[in-house]
Design a protein around this nucleic acid. Structure first.
Lengths: 264, 264
DNA sequence: CAGTGGTCTAGACCACTTC
DNA sequence: AAGTGGTCTAGACCACTGA
């Protein structure tokens, strides 16, 4: 489905693709059960008539993906599936709304400069107070409020934000442009809408909402904290778990633009 | 050259680790901006005094992780950060409760064999009806209901489930043992507790709940569908976004079972 | 058409860990 | 002590694709 492969599904073109597909298939299908020992490199070399390097790269990769565990002198073994882990896609809100085929608009409700409070200092990991920009934004899908964004930006880390109105670009996109490749930690929960949030979102107080809190860090310090509040009936997150297919060689080769065919 | 390594230095022990750390650091810190061209393999070979294979493996890995894009004849370039994506960890419920330091218990509320309904056939992707096992389970954290599990198991795919009481092992863990490495799709949303669910969870109806729905597939067909309902105040999901550090070599080395000597 | 990456080889030595 | 994986080399040829 997600392998937009050339129509004539020709098999793996490279040895390492064939080895990867074979082993992966045997594990995923259950033919090789968890804990089962898999052939050693020498055997695979013979089986596929290739050099050790080729086999080794495949096995290393499978180990990175967690499908197998390699132990010196003992051999390589099929891994035991750990806790469910999934790759979660958190697109830009504008993109989310666009995916629903609704006109997107956005506005800043509140904009306020202040110093960090004590609890915020915990998030931002500083000893002293730091200058912060506090923003409340409302993202609209047509006439309907879609998401309330409550954001704090560390002005020490991103001083340019102080003079930015965020009239054109929402803070999330603006920041991603400035500070690419940030590390983020997400917390996702359900909560009842507080009165002010409910008023902004035009829903009844105590309506269930999906709340996503994200702390975004640079290598050095926290850059921004954001709380996204979605009315429960309007939004759901979709995540898919793909043990290794997500990074199968063939897919990687055609990872051009069109790989974002996700449904909302 | 690399044989006599001073043990005083904690840093990367291998060339490829050093190259990976260097490039990754330059990208993540923003010193190399998105779209920026990075040195070609020949330059990196000279810079690190190593063979092309070593450089190539690192760059291939960075490309797999999405940090760089490689183009023949043009070179390798720092990738543009895509939409926020995160690795979501959905542990076994027993583990979740244990993490809260609460005594875990669990019981089957309801167990019923029947054929799939029309809507379910959509999920399970069959033309005809298939035999299903319907289960309702309640997971407890101490005296408090922690999660309500509503599950359907495709008995055509897992016939053994028909005679299983799930008295000892919860269906999730039981299935993971039988059918390892399943592919899963998650949907996460906030919803008000329905009256029956609220009664089972001993919460007021309409209380906000975090609902996780998961369809788990084999290569061939859907194996199980589960809806996990957590009272909103009791649970949150944590996800972290790590461009590549998640699979840094150093981490991977420690992942063996015996390496429990680490200071957590 | 030439620069660059993509794949592969046939070795080598080392490190770890189970036997 | 020996089996196994971990890393690395110095080449090679091919396949793209951008200039």
């Amino acid at each position: 489905m997600r392998t937009s492969r050339p129509r004539t599904k020709q098999g793996p073109r490279f040895i390492h693709e064939r080895i990867l597909a074979d082993i992966q298939g045997k594990i995923l299908s259950g033919r090789w059960a968890a804990g089962c020992r898999i052939p050693i490199e020498q055997e695979l070399m013979k089986q596929y008539q290739c050099s050790r390097m080729t086999v080794s790269k495949v096995l290393t990769r499978l180990a990175h993906a967690g499908l197998i565990v390699r132990r010196r002198k003992a051999g390589s073994f099929v891994g035991h599936p750990h806790s469910q882990s999934a790759v979660l896609d958190i697109p830009d809100i504008k993109v989310e709304v666009a995916a629903l085929d609704l006109p997107y608009s956005y506005g800043v409700l509140h904009r306020h400069k202040r110093r960090s409070s004590r609890e915020e200092r915990e998030i931002f990991g500083k000893d002293g107070a730091v200058p912060m920009l506090e923003l409340d934004c409302l993202h609209m899908a047509g006439e309907q409020p879609f998401c309330l964004e409550q954001r704090l930006i560390n002005l020490q880390a991103v001083p340019e934000a102080a003079s930015e109105t965020f009239a054109e670009l929402a803070p999330g996109a603006w920041l991603r442009r400035r500070v690419p490749w940030m590390l983020a930690e997400h917390r996702i929960r359900a909560a009842a809408a507080e009165p002010e949030a409910a008023a902004a979102l035009k829903i009844k107080p105590r309506t269930p909402c999906l709340v996503i809190e994200r702390t975004t860090r640079d290598v050095a310090s926290a850059i921004t904290f954001v709380r996204l509040i979605y009315p429960g009936n309007l939004h759901e997150l979709v995540a898919s778990f793909m043990p290794i297919a997500a990074v199968s060689d063939a897919d990687l080769r055609d990872r051009s633009p069109a790989s974002r065919a996700r449904s909302g």
